[in-house]
Simulated assay, not measured.
Amino acid sequence: MTNSIKTVLVLGGTGRTGVLVAPLLRERGLTARAAARSNAEVRFDWDDPATQRAALDGVDGVYLVAPVPRVRYAQQVAAFLDLAEEADVRHVTYLSTYRGEQAPETMDFRAAEAELRDRTAFTHTILQPGWVMQNFADHHVPIIDDTLTVPAGAGAEAFVDAADIAAVAVETLIDPAAHAGRRYVLTGTEALTFDQVARTIGAVTGRPVTYQDIDRDTWVRAVVATGFVPADYGVVLDWQTASIATGNGSRPTGDVHRVTGRQPTSLADFARRAFPAAEDALTG
């Protein structure tokens, strides 16, 4: 294998996957520049094109994480990709979302994917992960008073570990020719209902964790009210949870194994790793 990629700009360098991608690339012999608005090696601000141009200097590959939590960002991604072309970037791996190409036009998942596919100056790979398991160990979908509350009914989702997403991303950047034009749907080993998630976490932690369904509008309004996401991001939360509740959540695809050569992390294994260090997430 002859890799044309030597230096990778890792956007979202302090985020859940970017913080893992950069060191993994370095372990494989590439130069990785972790980029974010703050607390990263390279300053990168989606609202400041000057930082983007500087961050791209000397870069061959990009791990592209769109600005979050935003609903409309396709134009910003397009402008950044223009700069990437000018900088002679050779490959872009884009972190999208499950069924991003089918997302409602009220959000820009589909538009950003299309923008990338239309480019011919560099190759690309699109990653479409399901819900990440880390949601249960941080403040995205916290377990409060031993209760997991999400408007998903009996719907199932093949939750995926952020570490598995990062591992796939690294392979696409190590050997971009082998993954050019590919779209990988990244999932865990099995589709689980939220009730099964609660029972799995409960079994690992020794606590009686239970699942509670809730009215979707009520839940979205409550999340927005916390200030954790802006008001317009509620449409994304509504779409994602409705997809699961209606039986359209992600199902195991085998893409993690196909790209990395190893099976993805199970929820039980993730819980054993995550919850001893995140016990406060269970206590409320």
Score class of each variant (00 low, 15 high):
113 E>M: 12
220 V>W: 01
138 D>L: 10
141 V>H: 07
281 A>F: 15
166 A>L: 08
112 A>T: 12
124 H>K: 10
109 F>G: 03
169 A>G: 01
143 I>K: 02
22 A>S: 11
159 F>W: 10
50 A>R: 09
112 A>N: 06
208 P>V: 15
36 A>M: 05
79 A>D: 14
277 A>T: 10
60 D>M: 01
207 R>K: 14
63 Y>S: 00
190 E>R: 14
64 L>T: 04
68 V>T: 12
88 D>Y: 09
184 Y>D: 02
251 R>N: 03
224 V>K: 00
237 L>M: 06
162 A>S: 14
204 V>R: 03
169 A>C: 00
248 N>M: 09
183 R>S: 13
247 G>K: 08
166 A>C: 13
141 V>W: 11
94 Y>H: 07
48 D>R: 05
260 T>P: 03
115 E>Q: 11
75 Q>I: 10
4 S>A: 11
50 A>Q: 09
170 V>A: 01
18 G>A: 01
103 A>M: 06
93 T>M: 00
142 P>C: 03
254 G>I: 04
270 F>G: 07
37 R>A: 04
80 F>E: 11
230 P>G: 00
77 V>N: 01
4 S>L: 09
272 R>G: 10
61 G>W: 00
141 V>L: 15
44 F>G: 07
204 V>Y: 03
197 V>T: 12
109 F>K: 12
107 M>L: 01
32 A>G: 06
102 Q>E: 11
231 A>P: 15
259 V>T: 01
76 Q>E: 13
282 L>Q: 06
49 P>T: 06
246 T>A: 13
